[in-house]
Amino acid sequence: MTTKTNFETMRQTLLLLFLALILMPDTINALPFKEISTDNGLSNRRVQESILDDNGYIWFATRSGIDRYNGEFFVHYTLSISAENEVTEHPRGILINDQKEIYAFSEANIYKFSYETDSFHQVNNVNLTQREAINAITFDPTGHLWIGTTEHLYRFNTNDSTLQSIKQKVAVHCLLFEKEKHGWAGTSKGVFHLVEQEDESYLQKGEISFRTQR
């Protein structure tokens, strides 16, 4: 009786596996995926990051540049320090802030998109050391830019274009600010929690405190 029961269970299991193998390709093919590659106009198959703007355009940061996609055609942009400089940099990321401004960054520089000139321009006074590379950027609720590199955490004041080193000797991999003015930095030494005080300064619990300027 037991042998017969085991045989019946095995038979049902094999039948289910057989049906799964038959139905799986149809299920995969039914998914509404469409591959967009260099054959369709994408500048590079290696895409680092993407955003969606209010006009419905999708922006891709690829290894070869920034691509703007309207669902049918691509417009390509490059990151170069100046119009005269033919050397272009490899984008590492792209983001859009609450003011609908689009920023992109390479290992060494940060760029802002100009709707007037339809191009990306380098953000001045972001002077990093040659040994470090930018890993992440984001904006806090006051509109200032935070930069995480392989060696530092920086805050860039967008009003007076000053760069402040907040944390040294730490690799910052990701940054996030909430609307409640809490900041989070994922680093090589754990997660740092930044809390804005009443005087609009941020306090890093148990580590450092620093004053921000509007």
Rank of each mutant, 00 (worst) to 15 (best):
T3L: 08
F113E: 02
H121D: 13
P91D: 07
D160G: 07
V75S: 13
G183H: 02
E207G: 00
G56R: 10
S119M: 06
F192P: 00
Q197N: 15
E101F: 01
R214N: 14
M10Q: 13
G148N: 04
A30D: 08
H193T: 12
R131N: 15
D26W: 08
N70E: 07
T27F: 13
L176F: 12
L176Q: 09
V191N: 07
E198D: 15
D199N: 15
E132T: 14
G93F: 01
F105E: 03
E132Y: 03
G186C: 01
S82D: 14
E84L: 08
G206A: 02
Q12D: 11
E207M: 05
P141W: 03
T9L: 15
Q204I: 14
T9E: 12
G206T: 11
N109H: 12
K112I: 14
V87N: 14
S50Q: 13
N6K: 15
Q48D: 07
I96N: 00
N127P: 06
V47I: 12
F139Q: 00
T13C: 10
T62Q: 02
N29A: 15
A108H: 10
H193A: 11
F177V: 06
D118E: 14
D39P: 01
E180Y: 07
T142A: 11
T129Y: 08
L194W: 02
L42I: 09
R68F: 08
I28P: 01
L163E: 05
T13Q: 15
Y115F: 11
N159W: 06
L176A: 10
S188G: 11
D140P: 01
D98A: 12
K179Y: 05
K189T: 05
V126Y: 02
S201N: 07
N124V: 12
Q204G: 07
L31A: 10
E86M: 13
E178H: 10
E196I: 05
V195S: 06
R46G: 03
N29D: 13
T162D: 09
Y77P: 00
T150Q: 02
T162C: 08
T88E: 09
D26I: 08
D98P: 03
I134G: 02
I134C: 04
F33A: 08
L145Y: 01
F18R: 15
I102Q: 01
I134A: 01
T162A: 10
F177P: 00
Q122F: 03
S114Y: 13
H76I: 06
D199Y: 11
T138N: 14
Y69A: 02
K34P: 02
N127C: 10
P32R: 06
P25V: 12
F177Q: 05
L163V: 03
F18I: 12
T2C: 04
N109D: 09
N109C: 07
E89C: 06
G143F: 05
N127R: 15
I208F: 01
E151F: 10
G71N: 08
F74T: 00
D140Y: 03
Q197K: 15
